[in-house]
């Protein structure tokens, strides 16, 4: 056990100060130290996309970031989008289009799409598929996810214009 060092983060608007080992992955920090288990761990080497979160507004793989690197950062996880009584618009579209089956990849999908839509809401299907290509889903065949994202993008575009 190496010495632990203090880090400060704000996650979904709440401030946390915790002691971490330098080798603590951000994904483990969120799940095990903060109890935010909505972020899922699939491959733990940056291939599957399940652990995608937002760091200072940009999507990142939380398994490819040390907790200590996120010191003083603003993080958003799937728990920050909406909750079971009040889904956010993107989550609502996933529900309407049956864009999930087992749900393992869903939190990563939602965070990836949140980043995509924050930068551009006029996406072609090809751009949507390209944007989702770093997130693996073994259930849906992706079609319903693409449908949900297309619809969510249209709604976000309508609202902002």
């Amino acid at each position: 056990m190496t010495r632990k060092v203090p880090i400060n983060v704000r996650v979904n608007g709440t401030k946390y100060e915790r002691m971490v080992e330098p080798r603590r992955l951000l994904s483990d920090f969120l799940r095990e130290d903060l109890g935010l288990t909505g972020t899922h761990m699939g491959c733990e080497h940056g291939v599957c996309g399940a652990c995608t979160i937002l760091l200072d507004g940009d999507s990142i793989r939380s398994c490819l970031c040390l907790a200590i690197q996120a010191d003083n950062a603003e993080l958003t996880t799937v728990e920050g989008l909406g909750d079971i009584e009040a889904l956010n618009p993107l989550q609502q579209k996933f529900r309407e289009h049956h864009a999930l089956q087992c749900g393992f990849c869903t939190s990563g999908m939602l965070m990836t799409v949140t980043d995509m839509l924050s930068k551009n809401t006029s996406l072609t299907d090809e751009e949507i598929r390209e944007g989702l290509s770093g997130n693996l889903c073994r259930c849906t065949g992706y079609q319903h996810i693409v449908d949900a994202v297309r619809d969510a993008a249209k709604q976000a575009g309508d609202v902002s214009s």
Binding site: G46, L55, S59, I60, R61, L64, C65, T112, G134
Partner: peptide, 9 residues
């Protein structure tokens, strides 16, 4: 180069 989440870091 990889995907957006990788290009972001």
């Amino acid at each position: 180069i990889a995907h957006l989440a990788i290009r972001n870091r």
